[in-house]
Nucleic acid binder design. Sequence first.
DNA 1: TCTTTATGGTGAG
DNA 2: TCACCCTAAAGAT
Length: 279
Amino acid sequence: MKVPEGPEIRRAADRIERSLAGSVMQDVRLTMPRLRRFRSRLLGARVTGVDTHGKAMLTRFDNGLTLYSHNQLYGRWYITRRDTLPNTGRSLRVALHGRTHSAWLYSATEVEILTDEQLGEHPFLRKLGPDILDSTLQPADIRMRLESQRFQRRTLAALYLDQAFLAGVGNYLRSEILFAARLHPGVRANDLDRRERQRLARATLTVSRRAYVLGGVTVTPKLMQSLKRAGQRYGQYRHWVFARHGEPCRRCTAVVQRRLVAGRAVFVCPACQPPACRS
DNA sequence: TCTTTATGGTGAG
DNA sequence: TCACCCTAAAGAT
């Protein structure tokens, strides 16, 4: 797992929760100059939980403060037994030391410590759409968003990277969700018929939740098993189409294509996801 | 060993 | 649309 999307961030949050929730901060390190003044306020505070909204992580403390972090491309959390410094050449941003474990955040640039009020006004958080991993999110919610005035004129390629549409989808999930829904990235939301919207809404939830459960794997568990048995390694069996350009589609054997849309790569099976032939 | 590329997001032009 | 933040791995030499 390299660059994180929603599922990877949620899994990191789970690990931090398991090792630090309920724990009093016995030591804290904040290396970014603008955050140093918060050290004394976090010392002795208790971690109450770790929330995520899309790719944003919110580590909550019982004194009303929240550590907001966004890993962007390079940020990474390491969880260790207390005071076991991770062996990495990266630059440390935050270290939270509980009684038995430590959580270390490296390389991230987006780190803030905020009150609830500041959290409510946060420019990035406030524009986020619903979290794809929110267990209350239903296919109908996604269908309604696809039909809404706000989003219907845009292409699926654009919508599925826009965190205001759905928070937590990134570039690999975009390709994988659209493949699972058998829809071409160039199609506009308002070109979809009712069945296609339903298919897309379902695929969005299925693929995202599977990536969370299986640690970044978007193929079905069954396919994953058979690919593993065939000797494929993690990097080779994870996805249907993402980063598989030039290779045969796992469903129909047509050659997977890579195309750039607004500077970002989208991967498509030309047979399973035919371009829109609608006016 | 060097160069390129990447799963994110912002801000300038 | 592009440069940029910062990093690791893959690809080229």
